[in-house]
C-alpha cells in the first residue's frame, strides 16, 4: 500500500497544479467562450519571471511569487487588449488559432531571454520532505497543494460574494444582457485575463520549483500545463469546480498509471503510456459526455 499512497501523494500534487492552470482556462472560457491555448504560454512565462526575480534580482521566493503574479495579471491584460480584443466578432476558429499563435511565440521569447537557466527555482523548502509512515512528499509539493486550495477557495468566494464576481457570472451567462445591466463587460473580460495570468504564474512557479512532476525549470513546463486541457474537458468547460475535480482526477490517474505500468500493462503498451492517458480521458469524455462532469449542458431550441 505504501507505493499506492506514495503515488497518490505525487498525483495530488500534480493534480493541484493542473487545477490551478485549468482554472485559468475556465475563467477565460466563461468570459469569452474561447479555449485559450496561450494559457500554457503564460504558465511558462510566469515560471521564468519568478525565476528571474529570485535568481537575478535576489528576491525571496514569496516576494518573487508576488512580483510574478503582478506580472502575470499585467501580461494577461496586455494580451487581451493587444491581441484578443482585435478579434471580436471574428470566427471562433480564428480566435483559437490566434491563442495558439501566442503560445508558439513563448518558447523563442523565453529561450532568447533565459539561455541557460538554473535547473529549478530556489524556494525556502529546498527538497525537504514530509514523511507520513513510509510515504514521502516534498514540502514544495505540499505547498503547491495548499496554495492551490487557498487560491481556489478565494476564487470561489470572490466569484460568489463580490460585485465583480457576480458581474463575471452575469457576463458568462449573457454578455449583451450584462451590458444592459450596466456591467462593464470589457473590464470584466480584462479581469478574467488578469485572473488567468495570476493562476498561470502560480502553476508555473510551482512546476519550476520542482513541485508535482519535478521536471524543474524549462520550456517543457508548457507541455505539462497543456495537460490541464483534458482536466478542463473532464470537469466541464465552464465549471470552476469541475476544474478542481478534473485537475485532481487527471493528475492522480496519470501518476498511478505510470507507477503501475510495469506491473499491469500488456507487453505491447509502450512505456510513457501514462503521458497520453489524460488525452485518452479527454477523448472519451468528449465522445460520451461532451459537457464534462460539471459543465453546463447546452440546450438548443428547435
Amino acid at each position: 500500500m505504501t507505493k499506492f499512497f506514495q503515488l497518490l501523494a505525487s498525483g495530488l500534487a500534480l493534480g493541484a497544479i493542473y487545477a490551478l492552470v485549468c482554472l485559468g482556462f475556465v475563467v477565460i472560457y466563461r468570459a469569452t467562450g474561447v479555449i485559450n491555448f496561450a494559457q500554457a504560454g503564460l504558465v511558462v512565462l510566469g515560471a521564468f519571471m519568478v525565476y528571474n526575480a529570485t535568481f537575478t534580482w535576489g528576491l525571496s521566493f514569496w516576494l518573487a511569487l508576488l512580483v510574478g503574479m503582478l506580472f502575470g495579471a499585467a501580461l494577461g491584460i496586455i494580451i487581451e487588449r493587444l491581441v484578443l480584443r482585435q478579434m471580436v466578432r471574428q470566427p471562433l476558429h480564428a480566435i483559437l488559432l490566434v491563442t495558439v499563435g501566442v503560445l508558439l511565440l513563448v518558447e523563442p521569447i523565453v529561450t532568447t531571454i533565459w539561455r541557460s537557466p538554473q535547473p529549478s527555482i530556489d524556494t525556502p523548502f529546498e527538497l525537504d520532505k514530509l514523511e507520513i509512515g513510509d510515504v514521502r512528499i516534498l514540502q514544495i509539493s505540499i505547498a503547491a497543494i495548499v496554495i492551490a486550495a487557498i487560491v481556489l477557495a478565494a476564487f470561489f468566494l470572490f466569484f460568489r460574494y463580490t460585485k465583480y464576481g457576480v458581474a463575471m457570472r452575469a457576463t458568462a451567462v449573457d454578455q449583451e444582457a450584462a451590458l444592459m445591466q450596466g456591467i462593464n463587460v470589457n473590464g470584466i473580460i480584462a479581469l478574467s485575463w488578469a485572473i488567468a495570468g495570476v493562476v498561470a504564474v502560480l502553476g508555473g512557479a510551482m512546476l519550476g520549483a520542482n513541485a508535482g512532476p519535478k521536471t524543474g525549470l524549462g520550456v517543457g513546463i508548457g507541455i505539462i500545463a497543456l495537460k490541464a486541457l483534458p482536466a478542463m474537458v473532464l470537469g466541464g468547460l465552464d465549471s470552476p469546480g469541475g476544474a478542481v475535480v478534473g485537475g485532481l482526477v487527471i493528475g492522480v490517474a496519470e501518476v498511478l498509471a505510470g507507477g503501475y505500468y510495469a506491473e499491469f500493462a500488456p507487453a505491447w503498451l509502450k512505456p510513457g503510456f501514462h503521458q497520453v492517458l489524460p488525452w485518452i480521458v479527454m477523448l472519451v469524455v468528449l465522445l460520451v459526455r461532451p459537457y464534462g462532469l460539471f459543465g453546463t449542458k447546452k440546450v438548443q431550441r428547435l
Binding site: L7, P213, K214, G220, I223, A262, P271
Partner: peptide
C-alpha cells in the same frame, strides 16, 4: 534489473518507482 526508458522532460515518478521496486 529493470531498465525503464523515458522521454526528455517528462514526469519520472513511474520510472524511478520501477527502479525502486
Amino acid at each position: 534489473g529493470p531498465s525503464p526508458r523515458f522521454k526528455t522532460g517528462e514526469d519520472l515518478t513511474a520510472q524511478i518507482q520501477e527502479l525502486a521496486d
